[in-house]
Simulated scan of single mutants.
Amino acid sequence: MFRRALLTCAFLAAAPVLPAFAQGCDTTFALANRSGRQVNEIYFSSSRNNNWGNDRLGQNVLPNGASRQYRPNPGGSYDFRIVFDNGQAVERRGVDLCAVSTVTVTARGISAE
C-alpha cells in the first residue's frame, strides 16, 4: 500500500513536466503556397514570442504552387505571418507544430493540417 502511494505521488510530482516532453516532437512541416499569388515574406515564431523575427525566405520568394520545408525548434504553438507580392498579409496564431505536417497559404488565409 505504501509503495503504491509513493508511486502515485512520484507520478503526480512529474505531471507538470509532461508538457515539456511533448515539445520534443518532430516539428518538420511543409509550407505550401496555394494562394494564387507569390509569397514575398514568411514569418513564424513561437506563440510565446512577441517578435516575428527574420523573414524565413530571405532574398527568395515562394511562387504559387511551390512549397518549402522547415523544422523549427522547439515544438509547441507557433504564429505565422505571410506577406504577398502586393503587400497584403495574412496571419494565423496558435498552430501546434507537434500536430501538423503542412501549413498551407490560400487566398483566404492560412490552414494547418
Score class of each variant (00 low, 15 high):
Met1Glu: 14
Arg3Thr: 11
Arg3Gly: 02
Arg4Ile: 14
Arg4Val: 13
Leu6Pro: 00
Leu7Ser: 09
Thr8Val: 14
Thr8Cys: 11
Cys9Met: 13
Phe11Met: 14
Leu12Lys: 02
Ala13His: 09
Ala13Leu: 15
Ala15Lys: 02
Ala15Val: 15
Pro16Arg: 05
Pro16Lys: 12
Pro16Tyr: 01
Val17Lys: 02
Leu18Phe: 15
Ala20Phe: 12
Ala22His: 10
Ala22Asn: 09
Gln23Thr: 10
Gly24Tyr: 12
Gly24Cys: 09
Gly24His: 12
Asp26Val: 08
Asp26Glu: 11
Asp26Thr: 07
Thr27Gly: 09
Thr27His: 06
Thr27Gln: 03
Thr27Met: 08
Thr28Asp: 08
Phe29Trp: 11
Ala30Phe: 11
Leu31Thr: 04
Asn33Glu: 02
Arg34Ile: 00
Arg34Leu: 11
Arg34Ala: 13
Ser35Arg: 03
Gly36Met: 06
Arg37Glu: 11
Gln38Lys: 08
Gln38Ile: 11
Gln38Asp: 13
Val39His: 10
Val39Ile: 15
Asn40Phe: 02
Ile42Glu: 01
Tyr43Glu: 01
Tyr43His: 14
Phe44Asp: 05
Ser45Leu: 00
Ser45Glu: 10
Ser45Pro: 00
Ser45Gln: 12
Ser45Val: 12
Ser45Cys: 12
Ser46Ile: 01
Asn49Val: 11
Asn49Ala: 12
Asn49Thr: 13
Asn50Cys: 00
Asn50Met: 10
Asn51Phe: 13
Asn51Thr: 13
Trp52Tyr: 12
Trp52His: 07
Gly53Met: 07
Gly53Pro: 08
Asn54Gln: 14
Arg56Lys: 15
Arg56Asp: 08
Leu57Met: 08
Leu57Phe: 08
Leu57Ala: 03
Leu57Thr: 06
Asn60Thr: 09
Asn60Met: 07
Leu62Cys: 04
Pro63Leu: 01
Asn64Lys: 04
Gly65Arg: 02
Gly65Trp: 07
Ala66Leu: 04
Ala66Pro: 00
Ala66Glu: 14
Arg68Ser: 10
Arg68Asp: 02
Gln69Arg: 11
Tyr70Met: 03
Tyr70His: 11
Arg71Met: 10
Pro72Ile: 03
Gly75Leu: 05
Gly76Leu: 09
Tyr78Lys: 04
Phe80Val: 06
Arg81Glu: 12
Arg81Trp: 04
Ile82Lys: 02
Ile82Glu: 01
Val83His: 01
Val83Phe: 04
Val83Pro: 06
Phe84Glu: 00
Phe84Thr: 06
Gln88Trp: 00
Gln88Asp: 13
Val90Gln: 12
Glu91Met: 09
Arg92Phe: 02
Arg92Thr: 02
Arg92Gly: 04
Arg93Tyr: 14
Gly94Trp: 09
Val95Ile: 15
Val95Leu: 07
Asp96Gly: 05
Leu97Ile: 15
Cys98Val: 11
Cys98His: 10
Ala99Asn: 14
Ala99Gln: 15
Val100Tyr: 00
Ser101Gln: 10
Val103His: 03
Thr104Pro: 02
Thr106Glu: 04
Thr106Val: 02
Arg108Gln: 15
Ser111Arg: 13
Ser111Lys: 05
Ala112Thr: 03
Ala112Asn: 08
